[in-house]
């Protein structure tokens, strides 16, 4: 079977029916999504919802149980070395060989990628305040992230896939990380997909959002759409929260004192009617901030965070 030759499209990453089981448990369930070229896409999800599994399938490190994915038009399971050279991938936890120095890391990486920008590497590690002579084993977590990012970017990839690059970073290093990613993406026709738990960072650099809930894609849209379509209502309700199930498109509900804050998508007259039916007095309705909208979706992965999470059909 030959490699699927796809026409140069505007899509950098595609997934179709992508599914992965670990044992008998489905971790990623029939997901479909597309990441357009030139975009910075944030992949959000709680721990264990399948972000890393999805990313590892995208870069061909993990065989899907079923379904397909492609990056830069190439089937993920058939990426050739030259294809991989076009994809920058930073693994979760910023893995580096502890016995190496930063300079040795660069030599190792540059020797195994066809293109290499030494200047970019040095500029990037400078931004994180790292010297070439430093031993990896003596670097702080933030500095390891810096070296990892520098190694990923300096091969000049068309597509950047970063698995939780900001994990454990302090604010200064996070800012350096975000600026580096933004500058890199904006310097050419480049695409980035990064998973993260840091909503501020994602909001700052991403223009598209993917939110995974229980192994499925719940949100796949531009960041502005998410903010536009999700709103928060504050209502007064009695203690009978079971009535909330009657509200359509309710993402999440939480109680603040005697009031309930409902996060809804595409609020319309139908929603309004449902609210009236359950006797809730609508006190206010505001567009949701990005973090509120994202957290509402994320909370669906963890029922204990909310006194009410609509049951899945």
């Amino acid at each position: 079977m030959g490699r699927p030759s796809i026409i140069k499209s505007e899509i950098a990453i595609e997934a179709s029916g992508l599914t992965r089981y670990y044992g008998s448990k489905p971790i990623v369930r029939q997901i479909d999504f597309a990441v357009p070229r030139g975009s910075v896409t944030g992949l959000l999800g709680l721990n264990g919802t399948g972000k890393t599994t999805t990313i590892r399938m995208l870069v061909g490190l993990l065989a899907p149980t079923r379904g397909r994915s492609a990056v830069l038009g190439i089937d993920s399971q058939q990426l050739s070395p030259s294809d991989r050279a076009r994809i920058g991938f930073a693994v979760e936890g910023h893995f580096l060989y502890n016995w190496m120095s930063v300079a040795a890391c660069e030599r190792f990486q540059s020797g195994t990628f066809p293109r290499w920008d030494s200047r970019l590497f040095r500029d990037t590690i400078d931004r994180f305040g790292i010297s070439l002579d430093a031993k990896v084993s003596q670097l702080s977590r933030g500095q390891r992230a810096g070296v990892s990012l520098a190694l990923t970017l300096s091969s000049l990839p068309e597509l950047l896939i970063l698995d939780d690059p900001a994990l454990g970073l302090d604010p200064v290093n996070r800012r350096a990380l975000n600026e580096t990613i933004l500058e890199f993406v904006q310097s050419g026709d480049r695409t980035a997909l990064l998973s993260s738990h840091l909503l501020d960072d994602v909001e700052r650099i991403a223009d598209r959002i993917l939110i995974m809930v229980n192994g499925r894609i719940a949100v796949d849209c531009p960041l502005e759409s998410l903010v536009d379509r999700v709103s928060c209502c504050t209502v007064e309700l009695d203690d009978d929260t079971t009535k909330l199930g009657q509200i359509p498109r309710l993402i999440h509900a939480r109680r603040v004192g005697k009031r309930c804050v409902l996060t809804l998508v595409d609020f319309d007259s139908q929603t309004q009617d449902a609210l009236q039916r359950i006797g809730g007095e609508n006190l206010s309705r505001n567009p949701a901030a990005f973090d509120e909208a994202a957290i509402a979706y994320l909370s669906r992965s963890r029922g204990s965070e909310s006194f009410f999470t609509p049951s899945q059909p």
Binding site: D32, A218, D220, S225, V230, R249
Partner: peptide
């Protein structure tokens, strides 16, 4: 579930 926001052509 009725809450998905998918703005991609499958």
């Amino acid at each position: 579930e009725g809450i998905e926001i998918i703005e991609t052509s499958s």
